[in-house]
Design a protein around this nucleic acid. Sequence first.
DNA 1: GGGCAGTACTG
DNA 2: CAGTAC
DNA 3: GCCC
Length: 770
Amino acid sequence: MEERELADKIAYFKRLSTIQAEENGDDAYDEEEKAHRERCKTFHNATSTSNRAKSPARSVTGSQKAGTASQPLPHPDGSQSSDDLEIIKVTPLNPSSRLGAAGIADKTPNFDEEIVPESAGPDPKPAHSFLHPLLRPRMTRQTSSLTLDNSPSTSTAKRKKQARLKLLPENQQVFRGLRFYYIPNDDANGVRAAQITKARERGATWVRTLKEATHVIVDIGLTYQDIKSDLISDSSSAEKVIVNANYPIDCGIHRVILDPNQEKYVRNLRVADTPPVPSPSSLPASAQASNNLLEIKGKQHKRPRKDQESPPRTQSDYGEPLQNNTQSLAPVTTIAAASVDDELSQYISLVQGNSLYLEMPLGEEEEDSAHSEATQDDEAETGSESSEDESSRKKKRKTGDKIQLGQEDTTWQDNFACMKGGTREGTVDNPNAATIELLQSMVDMYEHQDAWRCKSYRRAITALRQQTRKITTAKEAMKLPGIGKSLAAKIEEIAAEGRLRKLEHAQQRPENKILNLFLKVYGVGISQANKWVSQGYRTLEDLQEKAKLSTNQRIGIEHFEDLNERIPRWEVEALAAVIREAAGCIDASVEFIIGGSYRRGSDSSGDIDLIITKKGTRSPQDLLPFLEKLIKRLTNDGFLTAALASFSENTNKGHGSKWHGCCVLPETAFPKDKGKYRPIWRRIDLLLVPETEFGAALIYFTGNDIFNRSIRLLASKKGLRLNQRGLFKDVLRGKKGVTYTEGDLLEGRDEKRIFELLGVKWREPHERWC
DNA sequence: GGGCAGTACTG
DNA sequence: CAGTAC
DNA sequence: GCCC
């Protein structure tokens, strides 16, 4: 969540110096980029030390030891990973990463003016390389097994054939994270052996037992009768994707995860009475009830409408997920088939602006609807469009003006870019790379200024990224979802002239650079920044001396550098430890959980989000006395150095109170192996969360922001409402979606339960980079 | 022309 | 209430 | 910015 901002700020700062020094800044870029990537790539298990059971402990089990030539790899657990992979089919574009070129300069409210074609920006380093496969998230609870998927390297010796396996380039590893179980599950047959190899090259893991599989690949010619006995042995088989051997082949061809429900892939593998999907009846009453409401509510809302059309899902979807994550504790075993897309993915797309959906969320009721639809389209189309936009795209297609611009090279896994954090992942080798690059600069420019516009740009970028052909004309561009007249024109301009005048103008303007600088000060938004710029202030010093600043802004300026610096993971832990220690003296039963990007596994964070909770509490109020003491104590210790926002006695109406401020790691807590100590001010947020709201708060404070918005949007669509306190139903919304009533609390305590109720597959924190 | 997540704190 | 932050 |  905070990462972007900070990153930007940081980068900005760096650039700033550069610029100042040499008047022509356009590097610094690199650094920032690097930093950004750096910070995003990791993801160790982020659980905080004091974590509650929730976060999965993930010990790395040696995992794969087996794996010999003809033996599938031992299941690397990672169960979820596969899910995620599928689930996250969205690409994250990470905004900040690119701050660079446009970076500093930008944010021009007024473009058009002089033009100084500044370079188009540095060139990003090969994004992909920066994320080693091992680093990718895919592990999950229990064993993390590096799922190195097929990567032989992982498990040491052994594995002959496997060792020889050559993974295809990342962008072709459409099966990364998926676990295939074949029937028969051996490579005795030459054809099958080849298929298995192919699948593994594309990232799949060949597992030896049905149980650990996400996909069951049935030899051509076998029928349900033939595989029935196999399936029965595993109760979770109903959740797996069961397809014939043509499926992985086609996916490979199209480099995308196709809808496994297409008739040609399941022919003879299902029986009429074989419920492919769990029945909704298994849902908790509450969920069901809300479901029903939905139908109606959905129609009342406009927002939902758009989504509703997309996937023809209905109640059945609610059922699906439930089975997976049944109880919070239940580890992975129950994770559903990876291919069952979850709606959340769609929303993530929607929210961040893209899509990548195949025909649809498979695995659910679409058995029928989606299915038939999918089969109608020829596969090529399905494949390529798969990642397109949800509803919009559909609509277009229906109206016939949708074109097929080739299949995206970026497969669903590219969506994981979000997890990698690099914005330009996949951009490099994309035919539209140049266009994307410039549009990204526009995004950077508009950041803070116009969030909506920004979102539109991002969406366009995603759409472009998914094309395998270069989009050169406005007409072509217009056919892509999320690209309208304005963007189409820009795209054409870029394609034709290799540059975007509007952007160049903007970047040149000093006002933009200044504006950008001001925007990086904590407590300064577009409004204030604009005022200052128009008042003639040009530097932070100007502000300090002449402008009237709020308390927070003053702090923001005085500690501009510190506050815009990333916080290494170890320091986050060290800071938390200091707090825990102090807290222990006040109330040992209070628990702390580090949220934010730390919880998502980031190796550096923009700030520290510390969730404070305690068993038996029902309201943040219950924790207030504790927090007050804690703050007093830490302030006295010199640990807390400033208060930016706290709970005001009056404002707080029984809700989540929080405390935002700054802190500094004391030298005594500074690890000797980290070099020389230097006190750096860090942003810290202390959040009071009663046990009853713990789950909802955890979701919120874990983020990332796109993820949060997506899941909220999804909730909203279902007539539910999700906020940091809980998931509510029967929310009455007025005209403009104004909430009239809070609705009844469905769940607030259990993070997983909330996912379930929303019909969303569980995602580990590290899988929430969108 | 409204919506694009939904809320808390500041001044 | 607008602005800002999360 | 785009979409409804």
